[in-house]
Design a protein around this nucleic acid. Structure first.
Lengths: 345, 345
DNA sequence: CTGTTAGCGCCTTCAT
DNA sequence: ATGAAGGCGCTAACAG
């Protein structure tokens, strides 16, 4: 049987309360007493039973998720994952609220962060727009002792506790490597469609993609990036124009959302163009396009993993505990039509 | 606050003990009383606090992992993950033991399963060799009410409760698709190296790979599969012979272990052959080969995920609980040198 | 500064 | 067939 607080109390010759004070390093213990207890802990090899501790505490963590509104399927999937987590709230001892803000709108986001601040939660998770007013608002949260995790897109310099998202430079590099290899010797330029250069994840993917293309496939012409605002209609228009202007277009890397527009434009151009399309995020639409062959590769970040990791980290940080970063790393999934997971319910 | 057993007892007008009997459907409750309690549970929307239940029970699950011995880096990594889980044993209320058996040896494995049976654990996880005597031994475990999970390689027809591993047909197909696309129009045959056709995961990968190659890249010559017994020295010899016999060899798919031998043989052949190599499992050696460019793609199954999933499932099955299969699915990771995760400690 | 006591939500004897 | 009481390992008042 593993040792309990009672065993430590006995071994150290003190009471339960004192053991508890030492364990949670609360004040009000002479350092000699503290030493005795710590020695007992060490010799008995005590490890606290977290479940029992939580039961006794009955603590509950109030968390706020700030997510972009709009049609973006990935973001809606992310929201669904947050709502799924809300459903398990009782078991997880969390109380989660969602704040919705217009996409790519730094002012609105900064206001939402301020609103979250007013509600004094234990932690906040935010899909960041990379702008000074947002950085400042997040900094103020932190200065007030509220834990902050950036979700999907990071916000360096904001003092956020953690970033729950993928390495977007690596994602861009991966896309570049696959694009270069899939195209082989086939001639023709490659286009890049982003959502907005205001968000860091898109900037980083672009950087990674361009880096690999210039470094490993230096003969390939890269067209200047166009910004589709993650809006399907706009993306369709932009991609349509690109295809028209470049009849020999060999590949398209869509590093943001609006895949419906991408798919529509490529399908309109027709099969015979054999455009190699690489896009991000597995959604019902992009899945269908991958299976039909319109999209060749999908890079994906698992929204469920990101949300659950964000919650774990927020709870830990709210308790002032450290986080094993390696254990919270979010993988970049690469999906071909052959390794697509079965559709979930 | 969510309802507790007390609330149900009050609502139903019975005692805690009776509520508990109903909750764990133990005998000794009149069906009228049972109904009253069940109605109370439903109207209050009660969900039991598993942590508190475990605390009260103090139950501990004894599990046995049966793993192949030998140099195979992946299997050693798997064992390391099991040992890591053993380290958390107290917190997880598990007592894990490891049984080691020679690789690809059906008799030895069947004996080990019988030995596990004798120890009467709550559950057994086994890396299966696909042979009748193993199937029989596993069936006997199940008939005795012991939960069984196959790990990495499955054993259909054995009545095992669950398979903790990847979809190996999909893995083979993915390898085939990438091989076909990476080679493009480049001429030359493709070789396949397996470990042994005695294990199901290797047979399935082969099936998937050949399927895609024949279906989507039908002009490409596929050499007959060779078996390297997951032994680096043997693999090196076999691959060396293949390269010698086919100076125009375009690609190699290594679907088993022994990557050290593969890498040695390909590097000996020299860069200028530009052989496209696709292999399985991320190990220190294969990682280095991916970074150096000797291996082009690594398909991987996360041993840690598999072990933790196996433990979760065994505990659930030991308690007679259902498992959400979708939630236990193990993904196929695809690693290029660009998306390799940072090396863990 | 330190100890006593009463729970957290659930399960388990032992009576009745 | 049902209930009362104590305890799992830990924490949190409240005394002293």
């Amino acid at each position: 049987m593993r040792p309990t607080v009672h065993d430590i109390a006995a071994e150290a010759g003190v009471s339960l309360a004192t053991v508890d004070r030492v364990l949670n390093n609360r004040p009000g213990v002479r350092s000699v007493t503290r030493d005795k207890v710590e020695r007992a802990i060490a010799t008995l090899g005590y490890v606290r039973d977290v479940a029992a501790a939580n039961l006794a505490k009955g603590r509950s963590y109030s968390l706020i998720f700030i997510l972009p509104a709009g049609e973006n399927s990935f973001m809606r999937g992310l929201e669904a994952e947050v709502r799924a987590a809300m459903a398990h709230s009782p078991a997880e001892r969390t109380e989660i609220a969602i704040l919705s803000v217009p996409a790519f709108d730094a002012r609105a986001l900064a206001d939402a962060v301020a609103e979250a601040h007013r509600r004094r939660p234990a932690g906040v998770a935010v899909v960041a727009v990379d702008a000074p007013e947002v950085t400042q608002a997040v900094k103020r949260l932190r200065e007030d002792g509220i834990a902050v995790v950036t979700l999907v897109s990071d916000l360096p310099g904001s003092m956020r506790d953690h970033f729950a998202g993928v390495d977007n430079i690596a994602a861009g590099r991966t896309a570049g490597n696959l694009m270069g290899r899939f195209l082989g010797d086939r001639p023709g330029p490659v286009a890049v469609v982003a959502g907005s250069m205001l968000v860091r994840d898109h900037r980083e993917r672009l950087e990674g993609f361009q880096g690999v293309m210039r470094q490993c496939f230096e003969t390939r012409l890269l067209l200047p990036v166009v910004e589709g605002q993650d809006d399907a209609a706009l993306v369709e228009k932009l991609v349509g124009a690109l295809i028209e202007r470049h009849p020999d277009l060999a590949g398209i890397y869509s590093l943001g959302a609006g895949n419906r527009g991408l798919v529509a434009a490529v399908e309109k151009a027709g099969r015979e163009m054999k455009i190699c399309a690489i896009a991000h995020e597995l959604t019902p639409h992009s899945r269908a396009a991958l299976l039909s062959g319109t999209i060749d590769v999908l890079l994906n970040q698992d929204a469920g993993h990101e949300v659950r990791s964000a919650i774990r980290v927020l709870k830990a940080k709210a308790d002032g505990l450290a986080v094993i970063e390696a254990q919270e790393r979010i993988r970049i999934d690469i999906f071909l039509k052959d390794n697509l997971p079965i559709e979930q319910a």
